[in-house]
Design a protein around this nucleic acid. Structure first.
Lengths: 341, 341
DNA sequence: TTGAAAGCGGTACCAA
DNA sequence: TTGGTACCGCTTTCAA
């Protein structure tokens, strides 16, 4: 007698009753696999329409053990690099019939762990992960199909989509060298992931090949923050012997550098040469545009989603060996590097 | 005999068996509501730990009819305004024990509908929605707790979190007027949502109050795109009688205007005065910074999430009346408006 | 304090 | 081509 008016969810049973068939048959037309006579199919379809019935994907997931949900886990949701990756992933996922949960770990290992323990491992079919953890053990514990993006951890046991950070940094630095620069500074951050480390070593290698010795006082390490870019650029540019060129090893550092240059009333490409890593709006807006190592951000998300879905759909056969897909970077010469001599 | 080695998911049954108790008891310690003797509780907890058991939230959701998932639906995931809203929502949601699905409709009504029909209405407890649809009917059909953000539709039957677009535009325009401007242009887009319309009428009102007649040739309507901002600014600035001030009615239009001004080698705040709507990085970077109508973007997501969760947790009592929360905007005077005396 | 058992809303196997 | 029914993994009465 209670809740007569309540918006009671209608279920497959209601449809079956109305249509005078069994739930099994309704289920059949829902899934479209088994054959059902045209007459009953039409009848059922009509009732579904009338009753405005929407099957519970949850109930289905429970028996199928497939949720059709992916998770994409990023350290931070406001950084345009991450939203680009998310965008690429979401697009492919939707095309393939998957929904996507977006989770931000705030670059916090504890939060990351909690998410994995409590939820992900049970309720999604696969994960696109831009990890915060540094130890391989954490990744090996993830027993779901997972693709690591951008930050790759060796021995994690998962596939990865990365870019050639080493080469990007190498090309950038070599460009400086080719244009006659000798006092070339690099602003980066901690080297606890492959990406940051590789960029530094690419820089270093190009220096050495150019007959230059990397000078510690031109290597500024912060935390990969815009503020670091600003602060270190200020320091460098006001030093007794300022560098003639700065390599900003990620997109937000580059922003900071640009601000510093502006605040010191200097001219990019004239008073100081600059190359950034990764496109960013500011860098492309200033005059002259800042030369950057461009990476295919959105494409990384696309690749990751494609690999992930293939893995989910594919045989659960023994995975040969974790596969790394390395996408190309390109040095976009926009004119912020001055030719010396 | 099959699949002996397979990574079989362990369930509540396994735990019960190991602990020599019933599944009911295990469920009790899982949920912590009912009382369980300390001894058994400890025993069970230990086994859970050993077996590394993680309960299936799906199974629980099915009987509880609560998924602990929210959806936030946005037209587009790359726009920083939307990611800020998402960020605010996700933060609150996580604090309150909810996960968040992010869905991008690509500003496409059909995609939006598909999502709602197929999935949302069944599998999430509530929705934060920045809608694409224009008709109230669509919204009335959503029978889940829903908060409309930014774009409000009357008669939708849902609560909303908005900003005072009218006042923002009014203040901006009045600022121009106060500084002696008379030829004041506005670049906006279609008026199919309240936000755009209100901005236009705010502009209009301030003009009239200032004794100025809005001149159609200074009202440029595009599609709210950066490209529109660029194109129309180009047109306006190269006209026979160019305006002395431009009100760019959203963030991306403002970017376009800035680019146009730069490409024409003009000086903001000198050759052309400019006010934008909403903060954007470019506007705050150029020299002088562009005066903007600032709105609390992230805060909108926070508010929406709080209202939503309260609604979900609260009594399903008859909702008095859809509630609109209107957040304040503020004119940030950064110096891009010239005083014409 | 604990256990037995009836679901939640579907799917899929076995029979008819 | 259809129906009956045993689950999926958990929660929640009701009884013990």
């Amino acid at each position: 007698m209670d809740a007569a008016v309540t918006n009671k969810e209608i279920t497959i049973k209601d449809v079956a009753k109305q249509a005078n068939v069994s739930v099994a048959t309704v289920s059949r037309v829902l899934n479209g696999r088994d054959r059902v006579s045209d007459a009953t199919r039409k009848k059922i379809l009509k009732i579904i329409e009338e009753l405005n019935f929407v099957p519970s994907t949850m109930a289905a997931s429970m028996v199928k053990k497939k949720t059709n949900m992916l998770a994409v886990v990023v350290p931070e949701i406001q950084n345009p690099f991450y939203t680009a990756v998310i965008g690429g992933t979401v697009e492919i996922a939707n095309n393939e019939g998957f929904f996507t949960i977006v989770i931000s770990t705030n670059g916090n290992e504890t939060e990351e762990e909690e998410f994995f323990e409590s939820f992900l491992s049970k309720n999604v079919d696969g994960i696109v992960l831009i990890g915060t953890h540094r130890e391989a053990g954490f990744y090996r514990n993830i027993r779901k199909p997972t693709i690591l993006v951008d930050r790759y951890i060796n021995d994690s046991g998962h596939d990865g989509v990365l870019i050639d950070n080493y080469r990007g940094a190498y090309e950038a630095t070599k460009h400086f060298v080719d244009y006659g620069h000798e006092r070339i500074a690099i602003i980066d951050g901690e080297h606890d992931f492959n990406d940051g480390k590789d960029r530094y070593w690419g820089y270093r290698q190009a220096m050495l090949e150019g007959g230059l010795t990397p000078d510690p006082k031109y290597h500024k390490q912060g935390k990969w923050l815009e503020e670091d870019g600003y602060r270190f650029a200020m320091e460098l540019l006001q030093a007794e012997q300022p560098p003639t060129a700065i390599f900003a090893a990620n997109n937000v550092i580059c922003k900071g550098v640009i601000r510093a240059v502006r605040d010191l009333n200097l001219q990019i490409g004239e008073d100081i040469s600059l190359i950034g890593f990764d496109e960013n709006e500011l860098a492309q807006f200033v005059q002259p545009r800042v030369t950057v190592v461009a990476r295919p951000t959105r494409e990384m998300g696309v690749q990751a989603a494609e690999m992930l879905i293939q893995k989910i759909k594919g045989e659960p056969k023994e995975q040969a060996k974790p596969k790394k897909v390395i996408l190309d970077v390109e040095l976009m010469k926009y004119g912020s590097v001055k030719k010396l001599k």
